[in-house]
Amino acid sequence: MSRSFTWHQVEPKDWRDKIGESRNAGFTFFDFLTGVDRENVEGNQMCEVVVHLAKADLSESHFISTQVLNELPSITDLIPAAQWHERECAEMFGVQFNGGNAKPLLRHENLGRPPLLKSTVLAARVLTPWPGGAEPEIKEDGRKVGNASRRRQRPPGVPENWLKP
């Protein structure tokens, strides 16, 4: 069986209409809703929200996406199963789903920045000593052994001016 996939990029104002339209056209299987951090789009921190809907026999798929600053109308009245995903997307990417369930899913409320945004430095990366910091010639206490000339390295994913513990 061949499967067909089509992508539909819409404006946030057409988000609900497009999803309702697909659902009414037989795309009744809701697979997922998630976010993609697009970072800087023309100077704005944008998040792309994507929904995958498929025909019940999985023969055809619609991926519907839209780019938002930080809010989007909820689709839970159209697709109740999307609630869990909207709540996850809200706490992981900081997108507010208006009209949906705003209760936090896994994280405590107001506990730092959304963790899946690329601009979020994970606190553990700052507070945990990085095992890769030592050079073969530099011991953990900073003692240099032999020909230790190389500069200490910075962990991947930690910005240059990261907080020192």
Binding site: W130, P131, P136, E137, E140, V145, G146, N147, P155
Partner: peptide
């Protein structure tokens, strides 16, 4: 960050 090693030259 679950690997650690020590070595000498």
């Amino acid at each position: 960050w679950c690997i650690s090693l020590d070595s000498h030259t």
